[in-house]
Design a binder for these strands. Structure first.
Length: 504
RNA sequence: GGCGCAUUCGUCUAGCGGCCCAGGACACCUCCCUCUCAAGGAGGAGAUCACCGGUUCGAAUCCGGUAUGCGCUACCA
């Protein structure tokens, strides 16, 4: 089996798009086939600088390796369509269609096309090219009228009959040829349109399964017609149209919906393994129960038969949950490593992150006042305390900053809780005991402090809350005794004293 | 406007004629655990299977129509 992912380098790849890559990759890996990356950059106006790199980075980050394509090469190189255009690949097939009468040159200027379209819309007719230049005499006249502009090549769609094909997801699809217009194959700049380049390259690269988004379903009949016109009937690939991914408003997911590019998710602190798992479940399922699957599980179980037909809303809450599950499943060393770039705010450590971009939401890192590089040994001690409290890697700075601050900043809520004679009395008593305590293991601290609550006539929740506020500056933190143990005796004593100083 | 596709809890989905007055997951609610927050455990609420008609002893599952939604309708992919 040979599948391909054929993105257009117009920007950072978006999750809907990369889901298509995932499915094509999964199918190739599942069948022991070949996964190809092909770049469809035939629209000069739309290509974005750096987009190709972003696509490759995204694929790499998710672990979707390609067997043929940019950088790795392959028997059908080049894999970049602008380069193939320069080699005359599409020109050749366009000429072949011209010679066999399946295509014709069209000299209609854009203004005329616009006008025709407007008129059709006014009359509530389907907007289609009126096939003006399909007539050789008209064509010649038009050519003389507009000598400057290079002509485009259009496909001569049969005006009668139907075109049918089988989609592996949706079964039989039939369209009346009369509803198809004479679409452009070769643009006046000499570059092919998607329809031509896609069909030609899929054949030349011996693609067996065309796996792509549902938005391509309507143009598949054109592609079928092209295969036939080129005499490639016997080599028709199987078509697999994937259900679309929708935003919360149920419209096709796009940039309007906020964070949708793969690199955005990376920056926000999602794990690639979580994203892969989540994306695989958008339009595919194994059974009625299984949801957590590693990349290996997915490769092993993936099948075209179990791809769904209905468009799916991207459920961010569920992704967040799944990301938390994967974070909890990480080894502590591993988690610490992955947390480092988010803590130090060293963008170059977040793989694939293009160098000098301004920090985005969730990317704050620890305050600049905290020395870099941060102490790894200390971080390793902290990690177990926050592991089950993280949904996103980017949440770490907000959870651990108090561990690192030299001069603790107190939340208003925490400070207010300390401002009562009761609180002062409790803190003073605790401080006195802590000063005599040398063992700062969490067990020892608990053994020391828990009985104190009763002595002071305070509920443990209240008493521990006061200590928490004094030692972390927060009303919410990891468990008190473990936190104090990690902070250590010196910091704890200093902080309790400082808190007393602030409220006395 | 034309063409195409789709329609099961708020969301992702299971279901391919009787096992389903519909199962799982996220989110939500309650309780348990508990020093806060999480995590975890136990429950709960939530879907007249879009609607109408047909086929059948029997339909979420098959057929037809309707409605709604989405996609496509460029010298963009």
């Amino acid at each position: 089996m040979r599948t391909r992912y054929a993105p257009s380098p117009t920007g950072e790849p978006h999750v809907g798009n990369i889901r298509t890559a995932l499915f094509a990759w999964l199918y190739a890996r599942h069948t022991g086939g070949v996964f190809i990356l092909r770049v469809e950059d035939t629209d000069l106006a739309r290509i974005a600088p750096g987009a190709l790199e972003a696509i490759q980075e995204s694929l790499r980050w998710l672990g979707l390796d390609w067997d043929e394509g940019p950088e790795v090469g392959g028997p059908h190189a080049p894999y970049i369509q602008s380069e193939r255009t320069r080699l005359g690949v599409y020109q050749e097939y366009s000429q072949r269609l011209l010679d066999s009468g399946w295509a014709y040159q069209c000299y209609c200027p854009p203004e005329r096309l616009d006008e025709v379209r407007r008129e059709q819309q006014r009359q509530k007719l389907p907007p289609m090219y009126d096939r003006h230049c399909r007539d050789p005499r008209q064509r010649e006249a038009m050519g003389q009228q507009h000598p400057g502009a290079g002509p485009v090549v259009r496909f001569a769609v049969p005006q009668e009959g139907h075109t049918a094909f089988t989609d592996l997801v949706r079964d039989e699809i039939t369209v009346a040829n009369a509803t198809l217009d004479d679409f452009v194959l070769l643009k006046s700049d000499g570059f092919p349109t998607y329809h031509l380049s896609n069909v030609v390259d899929d054949r030349l690269m011996e693609i067996t399964h065309v796996i792509r988004g549902d938005e391509w379903l309507p143009s598949t009949p054109r592609h079928i017609l092209l295969y036939r016109a080129l005499g490639w009937d016997a080599h028709m690939p199987a078509f697999v149209h994937l259900p679309l991914i929708l935003g919360p408003d149920r419209a096709k997911l796009s940039k309007r919906h906020g964070a949708t590019s793969v690199t955005d998710y990376q920056r926000l602190g999602y794990l690639p393994e979580a994203l892969v798992n989540f994306l695989a479940l958008l339009g595919w399922s194994l059974d009625d129960k299984t949801e957590l699957m590693t990349r290996e599980d997915l490769v092993q179980h993936f099948s075209l038969e179990r791809i769904g037909k209905t468009a799916a809303v991207f459920n961010k809450d569920k992704l967040d949950w799944m990301n938390g599950v994967y974070i909890r499943g990480l080894g502590q060393e591993e988690l610490a490593e992955r947390l480092l770039p988010f803590l130090e705010r060293r963008p170059e450590l977040v793989e694939g992150r293009p160098k000098a971009e301004p920090a985005r939401q969730g990317e704050g890192g620890l305050p600049d006042t905290i020395a870099r590089p941060i102490d790894r040994g200390y971080l390793h001690a902290i990690v177990p305390l926050i592991q089950e409290r993280l949904k996103l890697l980017s949440e770490a700075p907000g959870l651990v900053d108090f561990f690192f601050q030299q001069e603790l900043t107190y939340e208003d809520k925490a400070l207010n809780a300390l401002k009562s004679p009761e609180a002062t009395r409790a803190l003073e008593a605790a401080l006195a005991r802590l000063e005599l305590q040398s063992d700062f293991s969490h067990e020892a601290l608990e053994a020391l402090l828990r009985p104190m609550a009763e002595e002071l006539g305070l509920k443990t929740g209240v008493f521990f809350g006061l200590l928490r506020a004094a030692v972390t500056g927060r009303t919410v933190s990891p468990p008190l005794f473990e936190t104090m143990a990690v902070l250590g005796r010196t910091r704890c004593l200093a902080r309790v004293k400082r808190a007393l100083g602030l409220v006395r």
